[in-house]
Design a protein around this nucleic acid. Sequence first.
RNA 1: GCGGAUGUAGCUCAACUGGAUAGAGCAUCGGUCUACGAAACCGAAGGUUGCAGGUUCGAGUCCUGCCAUCCGCGCCA
Length: 615
Amino acid sequence: MSQETAHPVTLLNEIFSRAIVDVLGPEHEGVDPVIRPSKSPEFGDFQVNAAMSLGKRIGTPPRDLAEKLVESADLASIAETVDVAGPGFINIRLSETVLSDALDGMSGNGLGVTPVDDPHPVVIDLCGVNVAKQMHVGHLRSTIIGDSLARILERQGREVLRENHLGDWGLPIAMVLQTLREEEVDLEQLSLDQLDTAYRAAQAGSKGDDRGIAVVEERRIGPHRVAELEEQNAGAESRRAAAAETLVLLQQGDERLIQDWHRLIDCTMRAVYESLDLLNVEMDESNNRGESFYRNHLPEVVETFTANNLAVEDEGALVVRFEDRERPMLIQKSDGGFLYATTDLAAIRNRVVNENADRLIYVVDARQRDHFKDVFDAAKLAGWGTTTDGHEVEMRHIPFGSVLGPDKKPLKTRSGENVTLASLLEEAVARGRSEVLRRSEDERSPTHGMSADELASIGRAVGIGAVKYADLSSDLVRDYVFDMDRMIAFEGNTGPYLQYAHARICSILDKAGVEEEGFASKDLLLREPAERLLALQLLRYGEVVASASSNLEPHRICTYLYELSELFNGFYQQCPVRKAESEDLLLSRLRLCDLTRRVLSDGLDLLGIAAPSTM
RNA sequence: GCGGAUGUAGCUCAACUGGAUAGAGCAUCGGUCUACGAAACCGAAGGUUGCAGGUUCGAGUCCUGCCAUCCGCGCCA
């Protein structure tokens, strides 16, 4: 790549790194010049912030140092203006050619996204379906955040393994099987509703547990309450005993029970795949890596800990202790049974040792922070913090907040039950469709006269896109209030706003009637402020994807795309494309439109959001 | 009790990891179309960044102490 087609930030980094060494000496080799986009167009295109922190460290007034750097830096061929301002900011306005050449470079080069060269796969643990339980809003977040992170990493060329850590084994499943048998449900005709009922019956039956009594006793609540719970407990105990027997049979591979178990999974997963499909998330059976997958690995995992004195017995159970905290982690119960921590450890071992992954990402709600801290630390103690070829493994829990209702409490239905994912998506699709339909009734709308099928499909993309965008567009750890009216709005920082900008560009390009070859190699003219601002924003795309990837924060892409859409709309307002005053300007602006369209479409794809060409 | 997260305009959220006058969008008020798609654009108004200290040229961002809300804390997952 010649110097002329390099990215402006790359150019400025090189020039100012050299200037820093020239002015301050070779010991300042590799110091970051801190190049940033300018905060405001009045300051130019880019600012260099290094003079201030450096000046302080070496005892030179920052402004003087900034002057010296500017003197030493060879900017004549690329900059229009260079100024030192304020306490020591260096403001730079680049020449039109540097910008247009850089756009040329990004246009033919993956839109400026630089590939990451790492042969290790990345594992992303997402979705987390419980068999026999319908998906709810928590699964929504885990699934679409995880899917977006996967897309971002894949976009950089990394191999990503999406793993759905199914809750498909153990006592809870045995209890459901037991309940279904008692109620003589025909498993061949098993419906999701029946399964749901059985799950809740099983839960209710076993949950009048000891903990309830402990709490009641602790708080010195009346003895009648204790007696009540004890009575419940008696029933629960007998149910648990029955379930435990069922579990033993299941573990021994009882043929009929295994067959029932498969039916249970099929019934649950059919609905799961339907929702995933609607969400535009690509996952199928091959992504299932649940508890049953690891069930035979658990004794070995525990063995690794005991053999290395990493686990000790405590009140009959096996616990791992950590130096920096009181709280131990249980890996085996006093009755010999294993816990979810054990399964998570088995998964880490498999992902590192067998799949050779060097990055493990867990998209699980924020309440499990402590759990993952423990599991990661324990895995490192066991030696699974390094791949077999010696790379350090990065284990990251991506904690996300809860979805709240209008009352700011976790989202529930009016009757107090969890909102199912299916019902939520159904509402999103219905809202998207009605919005699209309503606007298509306007004779001047490009969607006017489209077939019902086409409108329905666009409406689906709008509704689902709205929900996904709302979920991904703010800092993940924060709770957010689910408000369909705000999400589906076409104004403001929403999915539909971005989709609209995209559709509008498609329409211009379509109506211009010029094929891509007609403008692909034409000169980009960036004379108008709006053209220049749009160009600068387009040039940031690669860096934004890189930052979303290293921080694992999809909302950075959302903010960027929103700003891009705003700048495009400003450009659209001020710069006629089809009615441009000359042929050269027409072609140049078509190129800007096309580049913007490609970045919008690529960015929305990283979020897993469809970009219809008409809406 | 211990540990963790969050707190920014009336509301919903940003702030490129310590940089210039803390930015957007809703909502409110006022301007732009016989439309390159007005589902858009431009403008006005709105702030002691929970509180109090500290670190330095410079703090929403780092440190200390409080306050409020939420979450977690050994044989559930």
